[in-house]
Design a protein around this nucleic acid. Structure first.
Lengths: 360, 360
DNA sequence: TCTATTTGCGCAAACGTTTGTTCTTATTAT
DNA sequence: ATAATAAGAACAAACGTTTGCGCAAATAGA
């Protein structure tokens, strides 16, 4: 191991093809071909192959992926853009994406945008410069010039969780409209009419769809839409807290609140707890996103579950497919179903008691 | 924009220094120097600078970071190795690390090891080949040859959450021993003697320390250590579920259970719920790791909180410092304090009632 | 006017790969 | 014995940067 120490700098130098070439006496090209398993194709003798292999192993050769990427224009790295990786929903998806990509031999560069479009633009630009082979993006908003630019490179790209209609890109989304519609309808069936929603970030795809589902459910059931029951503007906890406080203080407060994310629900629970209000007796709640602890809350929480595993798996599958068959196979838009899980957090006015537990 | 389309392949080519050199008539070196803000140093005229800048902007020049990395031996990328990014604790830390690194101008490559040493070794090797500038690692176990190899390159490295004593590396850990000791002691003060623990992965630093804290607390209070109350071997949910079932089925079941992770607690709650056992009347519980929903659970959960923000921030700070001052400034080991938060999940035998709420 | 200095910029090597082409030698066929 | 072929391996260009050095022209000093 003393062979890889640079004489002048005394620093250990990385083992390169050249070094192996020197010690074996074969040219760099031959070494490269052997190590890339191209011996047959280039008719390298078995003896040569054996020598090179063993020397490479002995020296602990490790190919320089930068050089390789430069030459090959392939980095085996995928860029993932996510709004907030500390959100359990996104964390879970990230986990799955990383897992599947690893199985396919890809690494992952992860970027948080914190729902900030400027950061998103910068981060995507950076990934592009780093030569990632493809992108999985959960975009912040409806602005998309920077993503359009990406499509022009024609590197594979899939939009996740949030679609941008104006963009001809692969995308995988959950049927947010239907999820919200069903949740709202369920509340209505249980006798609620004053139903509030706490929105997430406005003008995001998911939020728009959910609001639409909510409104249509009300309209279809002949309930007037009261804009004062539509509050909030952020998917985070603080929004849930403040918005709930506001709702509870109304002269005619809602009998049910529909929170548009798990973190909003967290803030909401805090507010409700502080106000010493009882779920579901005084207020019913339902939330978007699975919450692991939902069944064990003071009042087991009803939720709209999104199929995280499917989302992560489908994203990688789509991306890999597009990488394999580089010829245009048309962009695909995949719509996944959400699932309503009713627990005790909804009061059933028709029975005069709490809703019957349907699932755990 | 038609200038960047390759005549033969009809594909859009990336804008390179060479392309800018062609259209402006200046050499590649001059273009490079201008774009790297080295005009003064190399005495490039302001006029030239202006021309090059505007052309670069017009063409949308984007430096190839692979080439740059190859030449400069710097990638401005940090490798993060995490056991399970879907775990809220790790997700939260990852988020913070990414945030701080971004502020410092670094990207993040993230690897999940799923607590598997083989994956860890592979992933670290891959990062090394990709030329990351530094590493933040939450190692799986106590095996460390592969990490030692990293130290030999002398790239900055910080071990997080889990220390490896045998390794002379920077590291940031929480005082797991003390956290476990205090939690156990609290249970004892409340009159518990049959205290069980559900361990995480054995032979990890965190687990070892916690077990040690638990045992010492018992010993110091004159309680015999009963090995049958020490169960489990994994930080995940399933372990919590199964281990709890086993504990509850014992002929002489524990009056309190101390879960070594949030996910273990989740499984535990499921088991307790299925067995229709009441917390804290029939069994008291306390858990390692903050759980956002802890206050709103059927029985508000007592926890040992670890300072996530500090962990993430300290990790990045240490790493950056080591990168800046490349001269050896000695490895540092930082120990952070955990905090005990008592809620209603612990029965106080001394009062004959549930513990008084101390904090929310 | 002649030399010294400064100004402005280009040449070319290097980073570590991959791969089409070419070159040498050995083998086979005629 | 000669030509054709095959086997084995080396050459060199290319990927897109950065940077030490050198060179010409312009300016300054004498």
């Amino acid at each position: 191991m003393s062979t890889n120490v640079c004489a002048k700098t005394k620093k250990t130098m990385a083992i390169t093809l050249e070094k192996i070439s020197e010690v074996t006496g074969f040219s760099v090209s031959t070494v490269s071909r052997v190590l890339n398993k191209k011996s047959k194709k280039y008719r390298i003798s078995l003896e040569t192959e054996r020598i090179i292999y063993s020397k490479a192993k002995e020296l602990g050769y490790r190919p320089n992926e930068l050089a390789r990427g430069l030459r090959l224009k392939k980095t085996h790295t995928i860029g993932l853009v996510v709004p907030d990786i500390s959100n359990p929903f996104f964390a879970s998806i990230t986990h799955l994406i990383q897992k599947y990509l690893y199985e396919e031999g890809y690494s992952l560069i992860v970027c948080n945008t914190n729902e900030d479009i400027k950061t998103e633009i910068e981060q995507i630009d950076l990934m592009r410069r780093k030569g990632v082979d493809g992108y999985i993006i959960m975009p912040v908003g409806t602005q998309f010039e920077h993503i359009k630019g990406l499509l022009d490179d024609n590197k594979p790209l899939v939009l996740l969780d949030r679609n941008i209609d104006a963009l001809n890109a692969n995308c995988i989304v959950v049927d947010n409209y239907r999820g919200a519609y069903e949740a709202t309808e369920c509340l209505i069936r249980f006798g609620h009419e004053r139903i509030a929603i706490i929105q997430g970030l406005q003008n995001t795809y998911t939020n728009n769809e959910r609001v639409r589902g909510y409104k249509d459910a009300l309209a279809d059931n002949g309930i007037r839409i009261d804009e004062s029951y539509i509050v909030g503007n952020d998917f985070r906890r603080e929004n849930g807290y403040i918005s709930t406080k506001l709702l509870l203080k109304m002269e005619n407060p809602p009998t049910a609140i529909f929170a548009f994310s798990d973190l909003i629900t967290l803030g909401m629970l805090q507010a409700i707890s502080e106000e010493k209000i009882i779920i579901p007796d005084n207020v019913s709640i339902i939330s978007f996103d699975e919450i692991d602890f939902a069944p064990y809350l003071v009042s087991p929480l009803s939720v709209v579950v999104q199929p995280r595993e499917l989302i992560g798996e489908a994203a990688v599958k789509l991306l890999i497919e597009e990488m394999r068959s580089k010829n245009r196979l048309g962009k695909r838009k995949i719509l996944l179903e959400s699932k309503l899980v009713i627990r005790d957090s909804i009061k059933n006015f028709n029975l005069g008691v709490a809703a019957h537990r349907t699932a755990s």
